[in-house]
Design a binder for these strands. Structure first.
Lengths: 145, 145
DNA sequence: CTCGGTGCAAATGCTTTGCAATGTC
DNA sequence: GACATTGCAAAGCATTTGCACCGAG
C-alpha cells in the first residue's frame, strides 16, 4: 500500500547496481504504479505521453526491465506476440486463465500450486526466482453461449 | 509410438476443418516428428531445406499453427523473443524449469500440478485446453559454481 | 568532468501477408 | 474449374541499438 516504499526499494536497487537515479525512471515507475491490471510497454508509453511526460519508448522498455529485475513488475507473455506487464506491488502471487475465445484473462490464487512448485524445485536442486502458470481454454462466459 | 496414427489424426483434422491435404503439410509433420526436443520454426525450416525438401517459411509457420491446433505440437514462449515448439506425441505432459544463467531448459513431470490445475478450472468453470508452467531460476549446475 | 542515460530514428529479427502461380478436390 | 495453398519477397510489429547530446555523481 505504501508507494514510497516501492520507490525507496527501486532507488536502493539502482544504487546497488550502480544505475543512475534519473527522473525518467521514476516517471515510468509512477505510471506503472498507477496502472491497474495488465498493460504493455506501448500503453505505458502512451499514458506517459498523454500526461505530458516526455519519455522515449526505449527508456520505457529499459526501465520496465529494471523494474522486473527488482521485482516491482511481473512480465508475462501470453499467446500473442508481445509482452505484458503488471505491478506486483500489493498483490499476492497469482496465475492466469486465458480465454482463447474472448481473450479475457482471469487471475487466480492457489496456495497448493506454490507448494508443488517448491517441491519440484527442491527435487531438481533448482533455485526458483519466478514462475508463471497459464491455462488456456474457454472461460465461463463463453461456455454459456 | 505409432507415427501413422498421428498422420491419420492430422488428416482427419484437416478434412474436418476443410483444409486441403497437401504434401507440404505432411513434410512439415514428418520433420516435426523426427525432431527430438525443442525447436523453433526456423530450425525446422532449415532442417527441411537440408533434406532437400522445399517448403517455404510461410508454410512452416502456417503448418505449425495447424499442428498446434490439433494437439500434435505444443508451442512455448520462454523468455526470449521467439516461439519454440515440441511434438507432444509420445510424451506425457510436462513443464519446464528455465535456467536464467545458462539458458538450459529442464523438463519435469508432476502429477500433482495437473490435479491442482484441474481443481482451479473447476472452481472457475473454465474449460482447459492446454496449460504451461514455467519456473525461472538457477539450475543445479550453475548453482555449483 | 566523466561516463551512464536519454531520445530519436533506424535497424533487427521473428512472423505474417499480398499476389501470382500451383495443385487439391 | 474453383479456390485454398504455396512460394517468394516484402511488410509488420514489438523491441533493441547506434549515436550525439544531456545530466547525475
Amino acid at each position: 500500500m505504501d508507494i514510497d516504499l516501492v520507490k525507496a526499494g527501486f532507488t536502493k536497487y539502482l544504487k546497488q547496481g550502480n544505475y543512475r537515479i534519473t527522473p525518467e525512471r521514476f516517471h515510468v515507475l509512477d505510471a506503472v504504479l498507477c496502472f491497474d491490471g495488465h498493460f504493455d510497454a506501448d500503453e505505458l508509453y502512451l499514458r506517459l505521453k498523454s500526461n505530458d511526460i516526455r519519455v522515449s519508448r526505449a527508456t520505457v522498455y529499459n526501465t520496465l526491465d529494471l523494474l522486473q529485475e527488482c521485482g516491482v513488475v511481473a512480465k508475462y507473455r501470453f499467446g500473442d506476440n508481445h509482452s505484458r506487464y503488471e505491478k506486483t506491488f500489493g498483490k499476492p502471487h497469482h496465475d492466469h486463465l486465458i480465454c482463447l475465445q474472448c481473450g479475457d484473462i482471469i487471475e487466480f490464487v492457489n496456495r497448493k500450486i506454490e507448494t508443488v512448485q517448491e517441491e519440484v524445485c527442491l527435487e531438481n536442486n533448482f533455485k526458483p526466482q519466478s514462475a508463471s502458470l497459464q491455462i488456456f481454454g474457454v472461460c465461463a462466459k463463453c461456455r454459456q453461449q
